[in-house]
């Protein structure tokens, strides 16, 4: 899976990520851990790779990282921010 590239613009500001979704004309933001995942999702990634990114960045247990990555992916999917080929 990876982030949708059409109609979505995003950049990091002070460790958070601000996202402009032109399809819904809304701004969204993530916290620091969300930014870690957003950076990874600029390329095609598996859930395991995203969880590994959280473990590496924050030293949290792998099972917690997996659960948190899955929850965040669900949020992105709900907002239609992932590439449609992944849905």
């Amino acid at each position: 899976m990876k982030l949708r590239t059409t109609g979505v613009s995003w950049r990091e500001i002070d460790g958070e990520t601000v996202i402009l979704d032109l399809s819904s004309s809304t701004y969204l933001k993530t916290n620091a851990a969300g930014s870690t995942i957003m950076r990874l999702l600029a390329e095609d990634r598996t859930t395991a790779e995203l969880a590994d990114g959280l473990v590496e960045a924050y030293g949290i247990p792998a099972d917690q990282a997996t659960a948190d990555a899955e929850t965040f992916i669900a949020m992105l999917r709900e907002r239609n921010l992932l590439d449609s080929a992944d849905s």
């Binding site: 701004y27 969204l28 933001k29 990555a69």
Partner: peptide
């Protein structure tokens, strides 16, 4: 770095924030 689970939240609409920026 202290860890908080990833969050995604809406800040507002483009229109709302454009108006705010003027006192896209």
């Amino acid at each position: 770095m202290a860890y908080e689970a990833p969050t995604l939240e809406e800040i507002g609409s483009v229109r709302e924030l454009t108006l705010a920026a003027s006192g896209l």
